[in-house]
Design a protein around this nucleic acid. Sequence first.
DNA 1: ATATTATTGAAAATCGTTTTCAATAAGTAT
DNA 2: ATACTTATTGAAAACGATTTTCAATAATAT
Lengths: 138, 138
Amino acid sequence: MTTEIWISQLQENGYRITSARRAVVDTVYGSTHALTPIEVYDKARKKYRALGLVTVYRTLEKLEELHLIQRVHQPIGCQAFISAGIGHQHLLLCQNCGQVEFFDGDDLDSLTKNISRKTGYQIKEHWLQLFGLCVNCK
Amino acid sequence: MTTEIWISQLQENGYRITSARRAVVDTVYGSTHALTPIEVYDKARKKYRALGLVTVYRTLEKLEELHLIQRVHQPIGCQAFISAGIGHQHLLLCQNCGQVEFFDGDDLDSLTKNISRKTGYQIKEHWLQLFGLCVNCK
DNA sequence: ATATTATTGAAAATCGTTTTCAATAAGTAT
DNA sequence: ATACTTATTGAAAACGATTTTCAATAATAT
């Protein structure tokens, strides 16, 4: 059980460990699909019935702040979250089943350098998401 | 004045040309910043006072459907729109002044092929956005 | 154990977006 | 030009997601 990594991250940053937060962490950590606040709420309430939706919002806020989860941008909407993984990673989303995979895209460095030279921009950050069909769905 | 390109696109797709739509098109076409519905509303109302916010939403919907504008995803939110440009292009956003530039990223083909080979995904689409400081702001 | 104070859930408030609807105006036929 | 058909309009209401408020509760330090 490595949800403890997130739990101790919360603790180390001065946040208290509560049943509500454990339920949210247990739900989001290790999910292979991006989850919206409502989805987190529904799933987490199976573990801790008294959980309130407001607390889900507040906990997701903190997890995002600590870079433990990241927002997933999709044509449907941009309210879903998934584990941030370790280091800088890019997302690969299955348009059929919604599964999310990570890949590291260090190959992007040459591209950004090129763009930087061409446009004069000082590039600080980038977002890359690929959409397609996963092995099972294609 | 090339807003007429968008106007005739609307016309050719069976939509009527109205003062409200002209005002929205005039506002969004050629904007160097991504604009939210409210921002479009405020700007467009300087040209056509009777304009309603609902009509802004409905017109943006049609422009997006015709691929004349595209949604811009940002940390703050994903409700802003900007001209779609011609062909597939990627976005470069200035984190300071909000200016948007385009660049074509055909260089991405080798990357997506790589990922496809590694993961088994059949990649259909990709989103790439770069963030940084433009020439004036850095 | 006790005290302190962050955290909680419920309700209300708020914000952005969508739906409903009768009035209006664009395009078409006359 | 005129009349006709029907898409489009703006206002108000409805809606859904998110945020704020607040008194009660529970986690941590003492």
